[in-house]
Measured scan of single mutants.
Amino acid sequence: HNLTITQGKLFFHYNPKLCLSEIHKMEEVSGTKGRQERNDIALKTNGDQASCENELLKFSYIRTSFDKILLRWEPYWPPDFRDLLGFMLFYKEAPYQNVTEFDGQDACGSNSWTVVDIDPPLRSNDPKSQNHPGWLMRGLKPWTQYAIFVKTLVTFSDERRTYGAKSDIIYVQTDATNPSVPLDPISVSNSSSQIILKWKPPSDPNGNITHYLVFWERQAEDSELFELDYCLKGLKLPSRTWSPPFESEDSQKHNQSEYEDSAGECCSCPKTDSQILKELEESSFRKTFEDYLHNVVFVPRKTSSGTGAEDPRPSRKRRSLGDVGNVTVAVPTVAAFPNTSSTSVPTSPEEHRPFEKVVNKESLVISGLRHFTGYRIELQACNQDTPEERCSVAAYVSARTMPEAKADDIVGPVTHEIFENNVVHLMWQEPKEPNGLIVLYEVSYRRYGDEELHLCVSRKHFALERGCRLRGLSPGNYSVRIRATSLAGNGSWTEPTYFYVTDYLDVPSNIA
Rank of each mutant, 00 (worst) to 15 (best):
H425F: 15
D222R: 12
A484R: 00
D323F: 13
V334L: 13
L487H: 00
L505Q: 07
G368D: 05
A394M: 10
N422A: 15
G322M: 15
D261A: 14
T386W: 12
L277D: 05
A399R: 08
I438G: 01
D291L: 11
V327Q: 13
E420G: 05
D229H: 05
D291A: 10
V393L: 04
S304A: 04
T415R: 12
N435Q: 01
Y375I: 07
P434F: 06
T494G: 00
E227P: 10
A463S: 09
E247L: 11
L440K: 06
N510R: 15
S486Y: 00
Q256V: 06
K460I: 06
K406S: 10
G472P: 08
R481P: 00
L455I: 09
F289T: 06
P244Y: 12
I418L: 10
P332K: 04
R469N: 08
M402G: 04
S248Q: 15
E224W: 12
S363Q: 12
I410G: 02
P270K: 11
P413T: 11
E224Y: 15
V480K: 00
H371L: 11
Y504K: 13
L321M: 11
P205F: 14
Y445A: 13
P434V: 10
S342C: 02
F285D: 05
F215S: 10
T485Y: 08
P238H: 04
P205D: 15
I438D: 01
E217V: 05
R469W: 09
A399S: 10
T401H: 00
T343A: 15
K233S: 11
G489A: 08
D229M: 07
I418P: 07
C391Y: 15
E281T: 09
L228Y: 14
T485K: 06
T307V: 07
R466A: 05
E258V: 07
P314Y: 14
G449H: 01
G234Y: 05
D222N: 13
F226S: 07
A463L: 12
V443E: 00
E451Q: 15
H425Q: 08
S223F: 01
V334C: 05
R471C: 11
G476L: 00
P403E: 06
M427A: 09
S268D: 08
K317W: 04
R466T: 06
H461P: 03
V331W: 14
S367Y: 06
Y448G: 00
Q380N: 13
C267L: 04
V345N: 06
S398D: 08
V397F: 14
K271C: 14
V411I: 06
E442I: 07
N208Q: 15
S315I: 10
S342A: 13
E465K: 04
K317P: 07
A330K: 15
E265S: 06
L437T: 00
P205T: 04
T502V: 12
E249V: 12
H416K: 05
Q380F: 15
D291K: 04
T303N: 14
V480G: 02
F499K: 00
V327I: 05
T386V: 04
K361V: 05
Y212K: 00
D229T: 08
W242F: 07
F372S: 07
S243V: 07
G234K: 06
S304I: 07
K432Y: 10
L235K: 06
P238K: 08
F462E: 02
F372I: 02
D385E: 12
L228A: 13
E290G: 14
V480A: 05
P314S: 12
C267W: 01
R459Q: 12
V457K: 05
Y498F: 08
S367W: 12
T401P: 03
V331K: 06
E249A: 11
N206D: 02
T307G: 14
R447V: 08
G472A: 11
P270L: 04
V327C: 14
D323T: 14
K278L: 04
R318T: 09
R376P: 01
H294E: 03
R319Q: 15
E389T: 09
G234W: 06
T340P: 12
P238T: 09
E420V: 05
T373M: 09
V297L: 08
V358P: 06
Q256Y: 13
E356S: 08
A463C: 10
N421S: 11
R390C: 12
A335F: 13
I377W: 06
S392N: 01
N255K: 06
Y396R: 08
S305A: 11
E388I: 05
S342D: 08
K287N: 12
S268K: 12
P508R: 15
E260T: 12
E224I: 05
F337R: 13
L228T: 07
G306L: 07
N490V: 04
Y396P: 04
V393H: 13
L464V: 08
E217M: 01
T497K: 04
S223N: 12
H416E: 05
S248R: 11
V501K: 02
L228M: 09
G234M: 11
D323I: 13
T340L: 09
L232H: 11
L455Q: 09
P244I: 12
V414S: 01
V457I: 08
Y212V: 11
T502E: 15
R447L: 13
V397A: 14
I418A: 10
Y230S: 05
K361N: 10
T288R: 05
S268N: 14
P244M: 14
V296C: 15
T241D: 05
E430M: 12
N206Y: 04
H425C: 03
L440C: 14
G322L: 13
C456A: 02
E404Y: 09
A484I: 04
L293G: 00
N435P: 01
S458G: 05
E452R: 06
K236Q: 08
V327Y: 05
E279T: 12
V359M: 14
A263H: 05
K357W: 02
S367P: 12
G412W: 04
F289R: 06
E290P: 05
E404L: 03
D506A: 10
K432I: 07
H461F: 13
R447S: 07
A309Q: 11
R313D: 02
Y504F: 07
A463E: 07
T401R: 00
E351M: 13
G234Q: 08
V327L: 11
F215D: 10
G325K: 15
P332L: 11
E290D: 10
W216C: 09
Y375V: 13
S305L: 07
E495Q: 07
E495C: 06
N339Q: 11
L235G: 06
D503I: 00
Y375T: 02
L470F: 04
D450P: 01
Y448C: 11
V457T: 09
Y259Q: 11
R471W: 09
E356I: 13
